[in-house]
Design a protein around this nucleic acid. Structure first.
Lengths: 372, 372
DNA sequence: ATTAGCACTCACTATTATTGAGTGCTAATA
DNA sequence: TATTAGCACTCAATAATAGTGAGTGCTAAT
């Protein structure tokens, strides 16, 4: 008995009065937990309401249908279960899922299979030309293993550190600026040269920036530029005004938007879920996946590690019937980006949580090895 | 009468015997053309079979339902029309669509509206940071205007010319090579440095390559390297073997795959089409869009300008119920990439053809202005 | 050569009846 | 007092049936 409770399993109905206390002390009796878990487990597997008789027949339950009916009525009163119509069985409500995730997840189901493990590890033995390729492949594998839709957010560029600045003159008046970061990410941007600035002058400027800014995290770049280094540029550069204009061009508008790159894999998997058999719902979801801003919003989390958002806990309208499970990955302890799984609220939480957790950890150690 | 035919419109039925000649001389009478066109136009607009009575009531047709029934029976015999079931009207077959596209498209419907025109032109007044952004926006606008799914293939990199090679040393033993092309495209690739090659040596090599290879189209790069320049490297480089190993790394595996970038826009638009109300079909299509290789295959064309593929003319299985209209865009007269529209075989050919044609031309002149 | 007339076909819709899984309540039971 | 058996009731889902109407092909009249 891992649980501290010593409550006798046969007296759950005293609990029934708890509805009078509203949210105050919603402690479920062991029997109620057992029944709630049975309902959720069954609905996750079969996507159909389950009735008292079917629950009673499960071999981990030793009560008659009538008893279970009473308990289910209570659980419904408390908001953990819903009933599609009078003569149907019960299904979990969002609150029910939440309780399930927080308290009822089967610990011994939490370890993932050898196969899946291998599948994931194999990913990290491969050679990748570019970081982006790794991210794309990760999304693919994740969706293959889970049979849900996967989302991977690339590193927020501002968490990475500057490794090198390089300029390449293009045709008259244009040049390409290339920023290389410590994740090997190459950002490029084409700029126009302000009037009266010579190539030579620009090269001097770039050399100077390289000397001063390498190793600085990108999100500090702008601040550093405008405070510490400002005077020095003024002293060094021949045409101060124009140099600053160039620098302004380089860094403008980059900081409003979090510019994670977004990788979505296995979008077609949602079509296997019976809850998305309606064309209108499908359309809403696919439109959402096309809008990177919404996807980022979806993946937002305020803490490191695993995060589970169930149904209406999602702030994105189109996802209010779905759940999302995310985990952050890190480089040198700093959270860089996020990987996640998108599926119906009826998703297999325990399985997916363990897979996402495992993958995020492996991913972190892999890139740490790669770029340290 | 733009048509050279002087055939009396009232004697189409002599044509009925043409079925005995198989494909040989499938010349349709004017009346048959009129009726075929009516069927196709109607089906394009309403997605429903049309019967003889409805056709007879159209104001451009002056025949009784009975006459039209006879003609329709003939057109069905010849394979231009299909009949879903006995008591339904007729719908066009693939062959019917093909004839329609080749001979019956309404010339005066071919000019596009002011609104659409403006919408497109407006695209080319904007400033784009990168070429890729332009491509993505083009796909978006195209799908918005047409209400179908749009596909844009980026420039085949091998058609563009080398503008600059640059190297950036990373952590020990790794470096990033950056190729800039005349479209402003930046390709980067990380390599490992072979044993015993100094940074200095590499810089010499890159300088040399820059001198020799700038302006060469990428698809000639390898050939040029291994023939003309080979000896010179041998003379110049201190460590010939290792230098060649580095160069091999740089260019390996790039030439098998045509590495167009693929942009797909408005995939959700296909969900508005009644022919894709079946989940299985939707799944097949979306899986197809996820596989870039299939998308490229879909967009393949063996000639410049407009290309229309109808239904089973597509080599991609999943698209055998769909049509695709493509046009190439060019830089300095060389076809670089393709833009296209994907929709049901029942798509509005005349409208889409004119839009795609118009956009591709504008696009070509725009990028020519931009990079010349 | 064309068309009016007519019997026939067949998908689609609406109506109705049937079935069965599930419930809530009450009374009996351990 | 907690549990369970029993029973009347609900209601979605399925099946069966009939009715409707848009469309056809063929024949005979124009």
């Amino acid at each position: 008995m891992p649980d501290g409770h010593t409550e006798n399993i046969n007296q759950g109905v005293t609990q029934r009065s708890s509805k009078y206390f509203k949210e105050a002390n919603e402690v479920l009796s062991n029997r109620q937990k057992l029944i709630l878990k049975a309902v959720v487990d069954n609905y996750i597997e079969y996507a159909e309401p389950i009735g008292s008789r079917a629950i009673s027949k499960r071999n981990d339950i030793g009560f008659s249908p009538a008893t279970i009916r009473n308990e289910m009525a209570d659980l419904e009163d408390m908001g953990f279960l819903d009933q599609p119509h009078t003569s149907a069985g019960r299904i979990p409500s969002n609150k029910g899922y939440r309780y399930y995730v927080d308290h009822l997840i089967n610990q011994n189901k939490m370890d993932i299979s050898k196969d899946e493990c291998n599948h994931i590890s194999q990913l990290f033995t491969r050679q990748f030309q570019e970081f982006e390729q790794l991210l794309g492949e990760t999304a693919n594998i994740l969706s293959q293993i889970t049979n849900y839709t996967s989302i991977v957010l690339g590193p927020e560029i501002y968490r990475t550190k500057l490794k090198h600045i390089q300029i390449i003159p293009l045709s008259d008046g244009n040049l390409i600026v290339i920023l290389v970061t410590n994740t090997g990410k190459v950002e490029h941007k084409s700029l126009t040269v302000p009037e009266g600035v010579s190539i030579h002058e620009i090269e001097r400027l770039v050399q100077f920036l390289n000397r001063k800014l390498v190793g600085v995290p990108l999100y500090q770049l702008k601040a550093k530029l405008y405070t510490e280094i400002n005077q020095e540029i003024q002293r060094n550069a021949h045409e101060y005004e124009q140099s600053m204009e160039l620098i302004d061009q380089l860094f403008k508008e980059q900081d409003n938007v979090s510019n994670h790159k977004v990788y979505v894999g296995g979008t077609t998997n949602i079509l296997n879920q019976p809850e998305f058999s309606d064309i209108e719902k499908i359309k809403a979801l696919f439109s959402m996946f096309e809008k990177t801003e919404e996807v980022k919003e979806l993946m937002k989390s305020d803490h490191k590690g695993i995060d589970v958002k169930i149904g209406t806990e999602n702030t994105v309208e189109a996802a209010s019937n779905s759940s999302i499970i995310t985990a952050t990955y890190e480089l040198e302890g700093i959270p860089l980006g996020t990987i996640g799984i998108f599926g119906p609220t009826r998703m297999d939480y325990s399985r997916v949580i363990s897979i996402v957790e495992f993958l995020a950890k492996d991913f972190s150690t892999f890139i740490t090895k790669l770029y340290k």
